[in-house]
């Protein structure tokens, strides 16, 4: 009996891989070329709802979310998750984000740290 599907890679497979790569590039271009506007404020969301908007500056704040404690540290130029007691530590490893529109995700705590532009910050803080 002929094994199905074929067990040896062929040209169609290379095309499939290329299609996936092109899709990745297109999506990347779409998502990451958002205007590199100056980041002005940090929005922290827990469970999908924004809990706090703070202007960038030298500060450190701690958030309790879904049983975890996440410490967020900001400077004038960016923000990072400095410490978290979540098991995966992806949020800490993401490092510092500096551009408006970027975010840091902590999945276990269901917490998202997003940078927004300064104008946007003024509008909501008003």
């Amino acid at each position: 009996m002929k094994q199905f599907p074929d067990l040896k890679p062929n040209k169609a497979d290379a095309l499939a891989a290329l299609a996936v790569l092109l899709l990745a590039a297109a999506l990347g271009a779409r998502l990451w070329t958002s205007p590199p506007g100056a980041a002005g404020a940090v929005v922290v969301s827990i469970d999908g709802a924004a809990v706090e908007r703070v202007a960038l500056g030298e500060w450190s704040r701690t958030y309790a979310a879904n049983g975890y404690t996440v410490r967020v540290e900001a400077t004038a130029g960016g923000v990072r998750v400095a410490a978290s007691d979540c098991p995966t530590q992806d949020c800490v490893r993401t490092g510092t984000i500096t551009r408006a529109g970027q975010s840091i995700v902590c999945l276990p705590a269901r917490l998202v740290v997003t940078l927004t532009g300064a104008a946007e910050y003024d509008a909501v803080a008003g």
Binding site: A24, G28, L31, S45, G48, Q102, V105, R110
Partner: peptide, 12 residues
Amino acid sequence: VLGSAAPLAYLP
């Protein structure tokens, strides 16, 4: 889970 589109940035 997050109720946010932020994870989409990882997809590429």
